[in-house]
Design a protein around this nucleic acid. Structure first.
Lengths: 213, 213, 213, 213
DNA sequence: GATGAATGAGATTTCATTCAT
DNA sequence: GATGAATGAAATCTCATTCAT
């Protein structure tokens, strides 16, 4: 589906990506295009050809993480218990956000330029939607929350984590705060939600890897 | 206490602040120094003399809001019920954050350059500390939370609010989520905490940060 | 003699030429290769295959004019009066230069890449040589002038014409200036030069360059 | 009259000019701005601040030559004999053109951006006008020629000189050709032109600069 | 060969920050 | 100190030319 890059072009693209990834890890998401071009040993024009905007470059850098985000969310859909499903989804997402510099920026932007990133983000949103719908039906989360609120709140928590030191230890704590905060205020879980989750993605019960890292 | 600015300098400072405030309201916290100088009718150097960094300018712009933040937090300390006190504190803070563009950035930075801002933020932190200590003593909030976590989480929520449209309606919702998330997981509130709030400005024992990771 | 282009290649070549001609007429001799390729509906590579350099393309565009230039010069050789012959030659050349955008550039370059253009230019030079030799023998032009000076001076005049507005009216005036300037300073025309012009393409004695500086 | 450059700015300006002059001498009037900035040890922005366009830079590079051109032309005005005056003017101009790379481009452009260059060129034109008026009055030059034609023809001759090798020896020859070409076709000098040249620097009726462009 | 996507050198602009006056 | 002209790093775009397919 992608236009089958020419071999040399693919090589250059890869070089740029590698350089940009190093920059991202070291100097954050500023991603100076000229500097990246220089370090990658290509002209600026080449960088711009492959990645018309800094946002596009950022998306390309996190597309793998985005894929994992979507896939983990999909797997969470298979979890029978609605609340557990939501928790799994959030924890895996937090783990990825913590490990993938730049992912938060793309998630915060909400509207990727690249179709691939857009699709992946859409898939993630769909999974969130589904998990959320079940949780809501079960009465275990606030009824006012939509899938997009989850995205925003995740970004917010990530921001809180990065706003200060002691990052590692905060991931868990803030994740717990968020999960707890999403729950329906009362203990008023609705009667029954034994509806089996849809077969999507087929799951493994007890895939309990909590948070990454 | 301030070095008594010369009259013209004071006038320039005021002009710069006014212009910067307008910019902040209109174009966000980018605060282009050249542009502000131009609009204020002064040289860039003058802007830099009064405000060595953008952060300093930002602090100067929100110092009033910061004062109100501290004062509202102080008032919350007077609230007898520990949980109510915390809720009051958070709600007032959220209200101010929503109304004061730039305040979130200063809060997120955590370490103001200007003594005045630093003091105000310190006062706010002290109030939070106190309210939190009482709440923790009453068992109504997670034991792991320190005052600085409250600051960070507030910034995170603010970030979540701004990451997307529909800002107005999200303020309340996300504030509720945060308040709920902070509460101790179990209904295990300790027997009674009708103890009067400690005298203002005084620290509270047991302020230790809880578990490491 | 040309390697018999494949039918499609010939069609492409023709398209490129047509497009380039339009560009030349409209936007001068800048001839942006990418743009021409785009307008001609071919790839840039195709343009470069047919015309390795902009100069080559230019030569191809003016080859007809070059042919007419050579042919008119050849006809001028037949004129019995040596001065009239020179004048005819120059006037026809100026007429062509004025009507053929790009011809001046090829003439100024002096050393075409394409054999065809090179031959035509050589033919023109030979005619100039011959006319000049007779004029010199008759004492009606400066003895120091060689055929190549004529070429250069023609280019110079063309440049003068284009350096400023009012092009049409200047063609004649500057041509007259040149013709007059070439004439031998004194009225010292040598006795008679009714000798028939030598056979075409043959060189002429007395072509020596005169005084150095 | 000039805005009194700051000392460091003047130093930078001088550096840029020196570098540009070297480029001009070595690689012609292409004047790559980035390269000049690099070699001069300044940022591109600095080059652009001092010289907004390549043409402006070129003008700055030849302003001295332009001054000498104007001054020599002014001196030629003092020459009593109208034809000699014209010849002196042209010869000095050709000498300068041959020695000042870039001067021809500015002369050919005809409309400098910099006031200083514009004034100097205007002064030159005025002198040409005056010399020409006298020569015309004396009947020694073609009546159709205006001062601007002289400028254009000079540029044309310069072009002819540069279009080919043997530059040194052509300067004189082509200058002679031009001078001769400008003379009135017939020996029909008008009766008398013993009128003394006007005092130097003083204006002459009919001093109007020819075409404004 | 024929093709056009891909390349990189350079042009030009913007803007935060410095520093001579 | 107060000032704003001056600086240069980086952003972004254009285009002639190359070269993998």
């Amino acid at each position: 589906m992608a236009p089958e890059l020419r071999a040399d072009a693919a090589r250059n693209r890869a070089r740029v990506l590698a350089t940009a990834r190093a920059q991202l890890a070291e100097h954050g998401s500023a991603l100076p295009m000229n500097e990246i071009a220089r370090q990658a040993g290509v002209g600026v024009g080449t960088v711009y050809r492959h990645f018309p905007t800094r946002q596009a470059l950022l998306e390309a850098l996190v597309v793998d993480s985005l894929a994992r985000l979507a896939s983990e969310a999909d797997r969470a859909c298979a979890e029978p218990n609605p609340l557990t499903a939501l928790e799994r989804l959030l924890r895996s997402a937090f783990g990825l956000l913590a490990d993938s510099p730049g992912l938060d920026a793309v998630l915060a932007d909400g509207a990727p330029q690249y179709p691939e990133a857009l699709n992946l983000l859409g898939g993630f949103a769909a999974s969130v939607d589904q998990v959320l719908a079940r949780a809501r039906a079960a009465g275990v989360v606030r009824a006012e929350l939509a899938a997009d609120d989850i995205r925003r709140l995740m970004c917010g928590m990530q921001h809180a984590i990065q706003t200060g030191g002691d990052v590692a230890s905060k991931v868990d704590l803030y994740a717990q705060v968020l999960v707890a905060g999403l729950k329906a205020p009362e203990g008023a879980a609705r009667a029954d939600d034994s509806s089996q989750p849809p077969a999507r993605g087929q799951s493994v019960p007890g895939d309990s890897r909590a948070r990454g890292r």
